[in-house]
Every structure is written in C-alpha cells, then in structure tokens.
Amino acid sequence: MIAPPRVWWKPLGRLERSWFKLAFVWCIFLTAMMPLWFFLGRQNVPTTTYRVTAEQFQRQVDAFIQQYQVGTENGFPVVEPPPGSDVYMLARMWQWTPVLKLKRGATYRLHLSSTDVQHGFSLQPLNLNFMVLPGYDYVVTITPTTAGEFSVVCNEYCGIGHHLMIGKIIVTE
C-alpha cells in the first residue's frame, strides 16, 4: 500500500513483455474464432426475430397443430409437419406444446415464443439452449442430424411449476 515511486512509468521487464505479447495474441485468437465459426461453422446462434403478440402466436400455433396433428401423447398434440416447413413450439406456464415429429436431415424453421413469462428452450440431451421471450418470435433454423427422442426442458425459472415444464421432439430416420 505504499505510495509508488516518483517515476513509475518504466519499461517492462523481459518476461513481463513476453507474457504481455503472448496474452495479446491469445486475445486476438479468441476474437477471431467467432467470425471464423460464423462463416465456416455449422452451429451458429439464430438471429431471425419477429415481433409477435401472445394472441397472434397462439393463433399461429393452433393453426399449425390443426393442420399437421397426427396423434396425442399424455394429452399433448403430436404434430408431424412436412420436411423443410415452418414449425412452432409455444411456451407457457408450465408446458411446451405441441410435441414435434421431425425427419433427420431435413431443415425446419422452428418458431419459439411465450404467451406469458420468460422460458428457456433447452434441448436435451443435446444441450442446445435458447431464450424464449413473450413478444418475440425467435426463429431457430435447425437440422436434426441424429434420430431419437429428445426432451425440451425449461431452463429459465418461470414460476413455482418450473420443474414440471418439459416437452418433446421426436426425430425419425
């Protein structure tokens, strides 16, 4: 805690200088990775977003379910949309609806929104996570590359029933 010497703007020591350079290069590398992956990588954060009201989104989801419903599971509609189409999943306290049936290798525009509070779309066990906010239609363009049953966990605290909120995506060959 003693006061610094009168002249404290001295040149760096040799090792200090080496470390400073190395650290700087590492920071540049970290910076470069994101745009590189943005252009070359296959997993990027979706940015397509539309404004939507709760009523509008509810209507879109209802129409979507009506058009493509193929069954029900535990009281939830199961929906099988054509490959390559726009698909919807609605979050509300404390449900994800509908259950989606997708084809491996097909690309879908998955619309996510909430009609009440904030929720978190967490696809497990893949571990891909997106925020779902009321008022925003977040379009996740997704291509399943593995088949099987996947859970959609809610991982944004959304009230006392948060741990009851789980949905499902089935991917077939």
């Binding site: 009281g75 893949l126 499902k168």
Partner: peptide, 22 residues
Amino acid sequence: GLQGVARRHWDITFTQAPFQSP
C-alpha cells in the same frame, strides 16, 4: 452443466411432469 443440467431447477428427474428425461 456440461451434461445439460439446468440451473435454478428443483427436479431434473421430472417425476411429476408429463414426460421424463433420462
């Protein structure tokens, strides 16, 4: 977290939920 466990979550086994997650 690396295995996908959610933060702020009371029951990752979803015993009372409509679907279970292994």
